[in-house]
């Protein structure tokens, strides 16, 4: 019995909000440095150094925001659902807090992807909005995020809200591939693929390198944002606990 406890100690320690708060406090400065370094160099490289696109000129450069945001928006949903699943299965409160924090970040990234897509659409398609397959899928993803956000805020009991929204996120996860496939199919049904976006594979290597830097930068930035949101959630939830009180009194006496 005792060895059993020891074996799983790291797992349960991971589930301790206090431990999470302290360890992320130590990591955050480094992560923040890495994120700003990657994002600054990626932006500099992409916006100033990389050559303009033969067909689209300089307007293509918005992909350096659009593509990483879109990727992280989708990945973020899976991270959210995974955190929710861990919370539901092992009853780890910490995991639910991560899940709750992932929702607004993901929704914001989805919105950024949609917005930059619209801005990009104006010079390349002549209109801000077309019912393109990817844009439509992105819009549905935003709706899925909004559903989770709304459900999280609907319950008076925080624990109930955690678990209910985790179930919703899991249901959404199963649906995302179906949504993407069906929207793709729907799009080919209604209009032949004349308006094709530059796909990542046909992109020139000089343009691709900064994009990869930007994607990495967005990943690190995502982790930073997730940590910050989760730390705020921890303080909110654990406000009555002794260690948070000690922390607050330390901060205010400083």
């Amino acid at each position: 019995m005792v060895t059993e406890v020891k074996k799983w100690q790291w797992f349960y320690r991971l589930g301790s909000p206090r431990w999470f708060y302290e360890i992320t406090g130590r990591w955050l400065p480094w992560l923040l440095c890495a994120a700003s370094l990657l994002l600054a160099s990626g932006l500099f490289w992409g916006l100033l150094v990389a050559p303009p696109d033969a067909r689209q000129g300089n307007s293509f450069r918005i992909i350096y925001l659009h593509v990483p945001a879109a990727i992280l928006a989708l990945v973020g949903y899976y991270i959210m659902a995974l955190a929710g699943a861990v919370g539901l299965i092992w009853r780890i409160k910490m995991s639910f807090m991560v899940m709750k924090s992932a929702a607004p970040i993901g929704a914001a990234l989805t919105f950024i992807a949609l917005f930059t897509g619209a801005v990009w659409g104006k010079p390349s398609w002549g209109t801000y909005w077309v019912w393109d397959a990817r844009i439509t899928s992105m819009l549905i993803l935003l709706f899925l995020y909004l559903g989770v956000l709304a459900l999280q805020r609907a319950f008076s009991s925080a624990e109930m809200a955690y678990r209910a929204s985790a179930i919703l996120a899991l249901v959404g996860t199963i649906n995302i591939p179906i949504i993407y496939k069906s929207v793709d199919w729907w799009h080919t049904l209604h209009q032949p693929a004349t308006l094709k976006l530059t796909s990542a594979s046909s992109i020139h290597i000089d343009m691709l390198q900064p994009l990869i830097v930007m994607i990495c930068g967005f990943y690190v930035f995502y982790v930073v944002a997730l940590c910050l949101f989760t730390r705020a959630e921890i303080i909110r939830r654990e406000a009555t606990s002794a260690w948070v009180r000690a922390l607050v009194s330390n901060e205010s006496s400083r």
Binding site: F143, A150, G172
Partner: peptide, 17 residues
Amino acid sequence: GLLLPLLVVPLYMPIMI
């Protein structure tokens, strides 16, 4: 509440397609 349609409509989109 208006919440239920908000949760369900995105999930209804594929079957409607």
